[in-house]
Nucleic acid binder design. Structure first.
Length: 853
RNA sequence: GCCGAAGUGGUGGAAUGGCAGACACGACGGACUUAAAAUCCGUUGCCCAAAAGGCGUGAGGGUUCGAGUCCCUCCUUCGGCACCA
C-alpha cells in the first residue's frame, strides 16, 4: 500500500501516539472533579461481524471533537463507549456460522475496539461496558425484578410535586372480598397491577426470527423491522412491561428537554393520547348497554348508529342475543381470520352486518342500529364507536354503504347543511346546529358543555385514550438476558432473589431456536431446575429471554459506575453526572429506544436510583453516510466503504476530518473520494507548512496573525458547540490559505496546532512534539479567543435604493456621521441622494441610502 | 388525512435581517515532467463577444432602508404516524 498521497508518515504517528496515550491513560475521567461536568453520550454500537460502519466513524468522530473541545475548555468530560452486544445480528451471525454467540461476540468486540482506537477517539476505556457481561446484566435483571415488585399508583403525589409513581407491591390495597378468598386470589389480584406481568395475548410473531416481537417492531407494511419478514399473530404467554402507566409523564415531560421538534412530535404521536369521554347507551328492549369512546361528543345529536368491532367484548358476550345472530357470527369469524394488514389492504369499501339490536341516543331519543364492522378496531378505546356520519369520513362511508341517516350538527360560515363527503368532518370554529341546548355554540364550548352534562347525568365519564400498548418483553431466543423469574406450582411466578443475581446464560451444545418457537433455553434441563424463592420447593426457570432493548435502556447510567457490584450506580456519582448533557444518535431510534429508555429511567427515578426525571437534557440527530451512489450502504448493493481500508490508505486524521467536512451534522451525505482528496491536500499542506515554519520561525510577531488566530479560536469554538463541524474545518482551511506563505512565531504555531488538535489528534500531537513540547497537546487549554477583529480598516458596500453602487474603506469603529462624510467626499454624485434620503449605517457591514421619490 | 423537516451554482454545501454562493469538489487554461501521478498558479452562478449592465436562493404576494433568512398563499421532495373513533 502506497503512502505517497499523504506527505506525513501517518502509520508511524498513529502507532507511536496511540500507544503513548493508552500508556498514560490520557482520557481517563475522574468521577469527581472541581471542574464543571459535561456528559457527552453517543449510541453504543452492536458489534457485528462486519466491523465498524463508516457511519460510526462519522458520528463518533464528531462527538470526539466536541468532547475534546470541552475538555480543553476546562470541563470534566465523560465520553464513554460500550457494546450493545445482545443484538439480534450477532445472534443470527453466530447461528449462521454455527458457533457460540459468546465467542463470536467477544471477537467482534475486539475488532470494534481496535477500529475505534485506531481512529484516535478519546473514549475512557476504563468505563467500557458490555450488555452481555453478567456483571452488567445482573442489573438489567435487577431492574426487571423491581418492575415485577412494583405497581403504579397514578394518584400518588411525588416529592417533585408531580402525580403518579411506582410503589412497592406491599402498598397495594387488597379489597376485602379478594383477601377473603385466600392467598391465591391475593396473588392473582396483585399480578394484575405489577409493572412487569405475564399475560397470554395475541402477539406478533416473526417466522424468520422464530420469536414474538413487540408491536413497535412491526413496520407499517406488516414486516419485522429487524429482518423484513412478514409477521404473523400468535397467542403466546409473554412478559409485559406496563409502559402505558407512564404514558402521561412520557408526553408531558417532553417540555423539560431539548429535543428537535420532530423527535418530540414523533414521541407524542407514538404515545397517541386523545382526550374524550365514554358514553353508555341502553340497548332497546333489554337491560344491557353499550359503551363507546369519543373525542367529539359535541356531535352526539348527529349520532345515528353504533358500530362494534368483531373482536370486541360486546360482540363476544352478546352474540346469543342478536336477532341476526347467524349473519353476525359468519361476519365475525371471517374477519377474525384476516390480519390487520389484510383488512387495510382491502380498501375503503366498508363492510358490516346489522345485529338486529338498537341502542337509544340519550339526547335525541332516536334508535341507533348496532352494527358489527371490521373498520372498528377492538383494541382501540372500548372497541365500539358511535357513528356520526355528518362529521366523520369513515362514518360517512359506512352510512352511505348501509343507507343510514346523515344529520349535520356543525356548520361553517357558509351555514351549508348539505351532506357531501367532503363536508363530513368537524368544521374548525364551526357553529353547532340541530342540537337542542348546544345550538349556536362553537364546537369547543359545546364539547365542554355536553361532557359536563353527560357526567352529571351519569351517561359516561371523561377519559384519556392512548395508542401506546404495553411492551411485550419476552423473546424466544438464546442471545439475551435470562428473565430472572421462576415458576412454582404452589406460589406461581416468583422473582429470583437479589443474592441469586445474575441468572447467567447457560452454555448449550446447540444454540438454534426451536422450530416450534420454543426458546433454546428449554434444552438446558439442569439450568431450568431450581427452587422457589418463596416456599423452597421445586421450581422452573423462565426460558424466554429479554429483548435486545433491555440492555440499552439504562447503559448510560452504568458508565458512571461500571464496576459497582452492590448497586446499579452509586448515589453520589449519579447525582454528580446526570443528566446526559448531549445525546447524539440516529433517527431510527427516536421512537423506540428513546421512549423505552425514558420509561425505564423514569421508573428508576421513582425508585430513587437516579436523581432526575429525564435522562437526556439534549438530543440531537446526526445524518447518515451513504454510498458513493447516494444510496444507503449495503453489501447487496456493493456500495460499502470499509473504514479499515480507508484508514489504512489515508490515516485516521484525514478520515476523521473528511467525514466531518463532507456536510452538515444532520445531513445524509454520499461518500465522495474527490471531497476526501480535498481534505487530504489540506492536511498535507498543514504538515508541510508547519514543518517549514518550525524550521524557520518568525523573528518578530505579526500581530495580525495573532489576532486572526484568536478570531479563529472563537469561531471554531462556537461552531463546535453548535455541532457545525463542517464549517469549523472550512475556517481552518481559510486561515491556512490566508497565512501559509509567511512565517509564524513559535507561539502562533502552537496556537494553531492547539485549535487543530481536536480534529486531527495524531498530526497535531506529532507537530506539537516537534515544536519541542514534552507534554501531550491534548492536555492543553483552548487558546485565547476574540469575537471579531475590530481594529484597522475594512471595505464596506454602499447600497442606494437596494443596489450596491459603491465601496468605501472605513475604520471599523468609525461613527455614522464620519462614514457618510467620507462617502460623499469620495462620491460627490450621491450627495443629493444622501441629503434628501433615509440613511442607515450598520457599523462594519453596510451603508444603506434610500433616495426620496 | 395528521405531524415534522427541507427546497441556494455542474456537485457537497456557506451566509446573528446587512456584499448570496464561504470552504471544498469538479471542469477549463497554464507551470513543472520524457510521460503520468503528485504539486503549484489562474478562471469558473446565469445572460451578453467583452466591458458596462442586467438577472438570480421552488412560485406568487407582503413587512423592511435592506429578505435565502421574517409573515401569508401555493408547489415539490423527503421522513414519521394513520380506518386511533
Amino acid at each position: 500500500m502506497s503512502h505517497s498521497l499523504v506527505s506525513f508518515d501517518f502509520q508511524q504517528l498513529q502507532s507511536k501516539w496511540s500507544a503513548l496515550w493508552l500508556q498514560k491513560n490520557l482520557y481517563a475521567v475522574p468521577s469527581s472533579s472541581e471542574k464543571p461536568k459535561k456528559y457527552v453520550l453517543v449510541e453504543f454500537p452492536y458489534p457485528s461481524a462486519a466491523g465498524l460502519h463508516m457511519g460510526h466513524c462519522r458520528n463518533y468522530s464528531m462527538m470526539d471533537v466536541y468532547s475534546r473541545y470541552f475538555r480543553m475548555k476546562g470541563f470534566n468530560v465523560l465520553y464513554p463507549m460500550g457494546w450493545d452486544a445482545f443484538g439480534l445480528p450477532t445472534y443470527n451471525y453466530a447461528m449462521k456460522v454455527k458457533r457460540d454467540p459468546h465467542e463470536v461476540s467477544a471477537e467482534n468486540v475486539l475488532v470494534f475496539k481496535r477500529q475505534l482506537q485506531e481512529l484516535g477517539l478519546s473514549f475512557d476505556w476504563d468505563r467500557e461496558i458490555d450488555t452481555t457481561d453478567p456483571q452488567y446484566y445482573k442489573w438489567t435483571q435487577w431492574i426487571f425484578v423491581q418492575l415485577f415488585n412494583h405497581y403504579y399508583n397514578a394518584e400518588y403525589t411525588r416529592e417533585d410535586g408531580g402525580k403518579g409513581m411506582a410503589r412497592p407491591m406491599e402498598e397495594l390495597q387488597i379489597p376485602p372480598e379478594v383477601s377473603d378468598e385466600g392467598e391465591n386470589a391475593v396473588r392473582e389480584y396483585q399480578d394484575l397491577y405489577r409493572l412487569a406481568y405475564k399475560a397470554k395475548m395475541p402477539v406478533y410473531w416473526c417466522p424468520f426470527c422464530k420469536s414474538g416481537v413487540a408491536n413497535e417492531e412491526v413496520t407499517a407494511e406488516g414486516t419485522h423491522e429487524r429482518c423484513d419478514t412478514p409477521v404473523e399473530k400468535r397467542e403466546l404467554e409473554q412478559w409485559m412491561l406496563r409502559i402505558t402507566a407512564y404514558a402521561d409523564r412520557l408526553i408531558d415531560d417532553l417540555t423539560m428537554v431539548d429535543y428537535p421538534l420532530s423527535v418530540k412530535s414523533a414521541q407524542s404521536n407514538w404515545i397517541g393520547r386523545s382526550e374524550g369521554i365514554t358514553i353508555t347507551y341502553p340497548v332497546k328492549g333489554t337491560d344491557h348497554s353499550v359503551t363507546v369512546f369519543t373525542t367529539k361528543p359535541e356531535t352526539n345529536f348527529g349520532a345515528t348508529f353504533i358500530v362494534a368491532a368483531p373482536d370486541s367484548n360486546f360482540i363476544k358476550t352478546h352474540s346469543d342475543l342478536f336477532p341476526n345472530k347467524e349473519a353476525v357470527d359468519k361476519y365475525v369469524s371471517e374477519s377474525l381470520r384476516k390480519s390487520d394488514i389484510q383488512r387495510l389492504a382491502e380498501g375503503k369499501t366498508k363492510t358490516g352486518v346489522f345485529t338486529g339490536m338498537y341502542a337509544v341516543n340519550h339526547f335525541t331519543g332516536k334508535d341507533m342500529p348496532i352494527y358489527v364492522s371490521d373498520f372498528v378496531l377492538g383494541s382501540v378505546g372500548t372497541g365500539i364507536v358511535v357513528g356520526v356520519p355528518g362529521h366523520d369520513l369513515r362514518d360517512f362511508d359506512f352510512a352511505t354503504t348501509m343507507g343510514l341517516e346523515v344529520v349535520r350538527v356543525i356548520v361553517g360560515e357558509d351555514k351549508d347543511e348539505s351532506f357531501i363527503k367532503e363536508k363530513a368532518q368537524i368544521i374548525q370554529e364551526g357553529t353547532v346546529v340541530n342540537s337542542d341546548f348546544l345550538n349556536g355554540m362553537n364546537a369547543d364550548d359545546a364539547r365542554e358543555k355536553i361532557m359536563s352534562v353527560i357526567e352529571e347525568k351519569g351517561y359516561g365519564k371523561r377519559q384519556k385514550n392512548y395508542k401506546l400498548r404495553d411492551w411485550v418483553f419476552s423473546r424466544q431466543h438464546y442471545w439475551g438476558e435470562p428473565t430472572p423469574m421462576v415458576y412454582c406450582e404452589h406460589c406461581g411466578w416468583q422473582a429470583v432473589s437479589f443474592n441469586e443475581l445474575p441468572v447467567e446464560l447457560p452454555r448449550l451444545d446447540d444454540y438454534a431456536m426451536g422450530e416450534d418457537g420454543s426458546s433454546p433455553l428449554e434444552k438446558a434441563e439442569e439450568w431450568k431446575k431450581t427452587t422457589c424463592p418463596s416456599c423452597g420447593g421445586a421450581a422452573t426457570r423462565e426460558t424466554d429471554v429479554m429483548p435486545n432493548w433491555a440492555g440499552s435502556n439504562w447503559y448510560y447510567v452504568r458508565y458512571l459506575d461500571p464496576k459497582n457490584d452492590n448497586e446499579l450506580v452509586d448515589k453520589k456519582v449519579v447525582k454528580d453526572w446526570m443528566p446526559v448533557d448531549i445525546y447524539d444518535g440516529g433517527s431510527e431510534h427516536v421512537t423506540l429506544h428513546l421512549l423505552y429508555s425514558r420509561f425505564i429511567y423514569k421508573f428508576l427515578y421513582d425508585l430513587g436510583t437516579v436523581p432526575t426525571q429525564e435522562p437526556y437534557k439534549v438530543r440531537r440527530i446526526h445524518g447518515v453516510v451513504l454510498g458513493p451512489d447516494g444510496k444507503r450502504m449495503s453489501k447487496s448493493k456493493g456500495n460499502v466503504i470499509n473504514p479499515d481500508e480507508i484508514v489504512a490508505k489515508y490515516g485516521a486524521d484525514i478520515v476523521r476530518m473528511y467525514v466531518m467536512f463532507m456536510g452538515p451534522y444532520e445531513g445524509n451525505l454520499a461518500w465522495s473520494d474527490e471531497t476526501l482528496n480535498g481534505v487530504r491536500r489540506f492536511l498535507n499542506r498543514v504538515s508541510d507548512r508547519i514543518v517549514e515554519k518550525i524550521a524557520s520561525p518568525a523573528v518578530s510577531e505579526d500581530t495580525k496573525i495573532t489576532i486572526q488566530l484568536e478570531v479563529l479560536a472563537h469561531r471554531i469554538g462556537s461552531d463546535i458547540t453548535a455541532l457545525k463541524f463542517n464549517t469549523s474545518i472550512a475556517a481552518l482551511m481559510e486561515f491556512l490559505n490566508a497565512h501559509e506563505s509567511v512565517s509564524w512565531t513559535n507561539k502562533q504555531i502552537a496556537t494553531f496546532l492547539t485549535i487543530l488538535a481536536p480534529f486531527a489528534p495524531f498530526l497535531a500531537e506529532e507537530l506539537w512534539s516537534q515544536l519541542g513540547n514534552s507534554e501531550s497537546i491534548h492536555l492543553e487549554q483552548w487558546p485565547k479567543t476574540r469575537e471579531n477583529d475590530d481594529s484597522g480598516t475594512i471595505e464596506i458596500p454602499v447600497q442606494i435604493n437596494g443596489k450596491i453602487k459603491a465601496r468605501i474603506h472605513v475604520e471599523k469603529n468609525m461613527s455614522q456621521e464620519n462614514v457618510i462624510a467620507l462617502f460623499i467626499k469620495e462620491n460627490a454624485q450621491f450627495a443629493d441622494a444622501v441629503a434628501g434620503g433615509k440613511v442607515v449605517y450598520v457599523p462594519g457591514k453596510i451603508l444603506s441610502i434610500t433616495a426620496q421619490g
